[in-house]
C-alpha cells in the first residue's frame, strides 16, 4: 500500500515537472521570437550560425539523400517489375521523397548533427559562465546567443530537406534509368503527372519548416537550461536527440493526416 502511494506520488511529481518544463519552454520560445539583435548585427550573427548549423550539415544530408534515393530505386524496381509497372518507379521515388523521406529523414539527421551540437555548445557556454558573463555585461544572451541559432535552424532545415529530396530523386534516377533501364521519358513523364507542386512538394516543405522549429527549439531549450556540469550537458544533448526524433515522427503522423490523409 505504501509502495503504491509512492508510485502514484512519483507519477504526480513527473507530471508537475513536465508541466513546469513545458511552460518554461513556451516562455522561452516567446522571448526568442521577440528578441532580435537589430538588422546589421543580427544578419552577421545569423550568417555565422547558418554556417555552423546549415553548411556543416550539408555533407551528411547530400550523402544520405543520394543513398536513400538509390535504395528506393533498387527496391521499387524489383517490386514493380513483377507487375510490369516499372514506369511507376518515378512517381514512387519522388512521392516518397518529397512527401515523407525528405522532411523526416533530414529532420532526424539534423537533430543528430546540428541539434546535438547546438545543445552541447550552449550547455558548455552555460557551464563555463559565458552566459552569466554576458548577462553581467548587460548583454542579453537570448538576443545574442539563442535567437540567431534558433532562426538559423528554422531556416536551414527546410532548405536541407529540399536538397535531400532533390539529391534523392537524382539517386533514384541514376539507379532506375541509367542502371536498370527504365524508360527515361516514362520515368520523368509519370513523375511529373503524379507529383503536384502545391499538394506534394509544398506540403513537404511546410512539414520540414515545422520540424525545423521543433528540433531547434528543443535543442536551444535543453542547452540553455542544462545543468552546468559535464554530466548535465551530456544528458541535455541526449535529451535533445531523443526528444526531437520522437517529436518529429509523431508530428509527421499528425501533419500527414491533416495534409494527405482521409482522416481530416
Amino acid at each position: 500500500m505504501h509502495r503504491l502511494i509512492h508510485h502514484i506520488q512519483s507519477i504526480g511529481q513527473k507530471t508537475i515537472g513536465f508541466c513546469i518544463a513545458f511552460g518554461r519552454a513556451n516562455l522561452f520560445i516567446l522571448s526568442i521570437i521577440f528578441a532580435w539583435p537589430g538588422f546589421k548585427l543580427g544578419a552577421r550573427l545569423l550568417v555565422k550560425q547558418l554556417y555552423s548549423v546549415g553548411v556543416l550539415s550539408l555533407i551528411i544530408i547530400v550523402v544520405s539523400g543520394g543513398f536513400v534515393g538509390m535504395v528506393l530505386g533498387l527496391q521499387g524496381y524489383t517490386t514493380l517489375i513483377k507487375f510490369g509497372a516499372e514506369q511507376a518507379l518515378g512517381p514512387m521515388i519522388s512521392l516518397a521523397l518529397v512527401r515523407e523521406l525528405g522532411p523526416v529523414m533530414s529532420a532526424l539527421l539534423f537533430a543528430g548533427r546540428a541539434g546535438s551540437a547546438l545543445t552541447a555548445e550552449i550547455g558548455l557556454m552555460r557551464a563555463t559562465e559565458q552566459l552569466s558573463g554576458m548577462e553581467m555585461m548587460a548583454v542579453d544572451p537570448i538576443t545574442r546567443v539563442i535567437a540567431p541559432r534558433f532562426w538559423a535552424g528554422v531556416i536551414s532545415l527546410p532548405l536541407l530537406a529540399i536538397l535531400f529530396s532533390a539529391v534523392g530523386v537524382w539517386g533514384g534516377t541514376l539507379v532506375g534509368v541509367n542502371w536498370l533501364g527504365v524508360d527515361e521519358g516514362a520515368f520523368w513523364g509519370n513523375m511529373q503527372s503524379a507529383v503536384d507542386w502545391h499538394e506534394d512538394v509544398w506540403n513537404g516543405i511546410i512539414k520540414s519548416f515545422v520540424f525545423g522549429i521543433l528540433v531547434t527549439w528543443l535543442a536551444v531549450f535543453h542547452g540553455y537550461y542544462a545543468t552546468p556540469t559535464s554530466e548535465g550537458v551530456s544528458l541535455a544533448t541526449t535529451r535533445t536527440v531523443v526528444q526531437s526524433s520522437l517529436v518529429v515522427l509523431a508530428m509527421d503522423f499528425v501533419l500527414t493526416a491533416l495534409m494527405f490523409g482521409e482522416l481530416g
Binding site: T128, Q130, M134, A138
Partner: peptide
Amino acid sequence: RQKMGILFQSGALFTDLSVFDNVAFPLRE
C-alpha cells in the same frame, strides 16, 4: 551593469572569439 565589471572564476571568455574580440565585445556592444 555597464558601470560594473565582473571577473568570473573561470574567466568566462567567449570561446569562439579571439582575445582581441573578447575585450572589444563590451565596447562594440
